[in-house]
Design a protein around this nucleic acid. Structure first.
Lengths: 206, 206
DNA sequence: AGGGAATTCCCGTTTTTCAGGGATTTTTCA
DNA sequence: TGAAAAATCCCTGAAAAACGGGAATTCCCT
């Protein structure tokens, strides 16, 4: 039986490309596409694909949130993440949230078909580039900061002083200072400048 | 006479998508594709398309450099920039370097065909999103900093203090401080944290 | 129920940044 | 060759961050 495939991507050219690539592939049945998370969810109300190819960065709800939702509500559907960039945190988050595979948009026809078939059988498929990025990151691993620390970090990056942050969060300056110190340690940063830089580079803040 | 089109993009799916979209369009003749700047240049040694669709971010030479080269050596070829993101600086740089148009990868079939046809006649076509980004940026325009200021900014972002920077550059702390102050004014930042954040966001430093 | 993590708070000292001036010497380029 | 822009240097005082400690409470998970 052919694998029923659905695609969520906000790039028309990519959808068209995948459609065209899979046109003569009779092991895969094209169910359609959505260009954002909401239309995807609406589609799933009545239809049940076997595999969804899902772009990670989309306007509105991201592929990561969408993946989580779909996996929670329709555990029989397998998901393959799709993105342009080989971005450490994206890949990890996508896999954490239940994706079965990960492809970059420069994948070949062979790789695409192979990935869909593997995943439809319940296996995993992560493309080489993404896999090596994951391995690299396991060694280097991202600093883990708490919810509160992240809040403080965001305020710091937007230029607020400890005093201003304290007022915003209704806590004392000492507390803010403690958080700041802990964040600096976790990031192995010696001051705010390098902290903000690495936090942005690691996409921990935007 | 049909417009002869060539495509440079490192994403197979996008090439395939565009190919598929243009298959039944007889005003456009598909000449082929390259997945990087070098193969594009090699192709141009013997062939002469009318229009090149060119991805901006590619491994190796970027679309911006490639665009410049092509325009210098083959001024009869018109170029349309292509990218995933609506990124201020990219669009501007691409247009500065001689591109005739700019499309995002979520363009529709109609828009794609229209853009190619317009550009082939020597006109310009910039998609709405990109155009509004350009307008937005003209008003807001990027801070212009001097070479020295950029050097200092980079050291600041990597966590060096004024003192350390002074030693590295063999200048006095006062001078570094002056640069720092000027940079802060130019970025309208109130402190280092917000400075580093906006400098990174505007891609003025990496 | 117990333990660890998270969040909260405080102190004192040193270093660095911020904000406000002003001033001189090089470069650059029209 | 001359004016504008860039790069250099200096001062002072206040504000904030960095450093190095310690400690109490609350939350969460097993």
């Amino acid at each position: 039986m052919a694998t029923k495939l659905f695609i969520v991507d906000d790039h028309y050219m990519v959808i068209e490309g995948i459609h065209s690539i899979l046109q003569n592939e009779n092991s895969i049945e094209w169910m359609g596409h959505a260009s954002n998370a909401d239309s995807c969810l609406a589609f799933l109300k009545n239809q049940r694909p076997d595999v969804i190819l899902m772009d990670i960065s989309m306007p509105g709800m991201s592929g990561i949130e969408l993946c989580k939702l779909v996996r929670e509500n329709y555990p029989s559907i397998y998901i393959i993440g799709l993105s342009t960039f080989n971005q450490q945190s994206f890949i990890k988050k996508m896999m954490d949230v239940g994706a079965s595979g990960y492809l970059l948009k420069n994948a070949t026809r062979q790789e695409l078909i192979f990935a869909i078939n593997e995943v439809s059988k319940g296996k995993m498929y992560v493309c080489d580039e993404a896999a090596s990025t994951l391995r690299f990151n396991e060694k280097l691993q991202l600093p883990v900061i708490t919810r509160r620390e992240k809040e403080v970090l965001e305020f710091i990056a937007s230029g607020l002083t400890n005093n201003e942050i304290a007022k915003k969060l209704f806590i004392s300056v000492s507390t803010v200072d403690s958080h700041r110190k802990n964040i600096l340690v976790k990031f192995e940063a010696k001051n705010i400048a390098s902290l903000v830089k690495t936090a942005l580079q690691l996409k921990i803040i935007e």
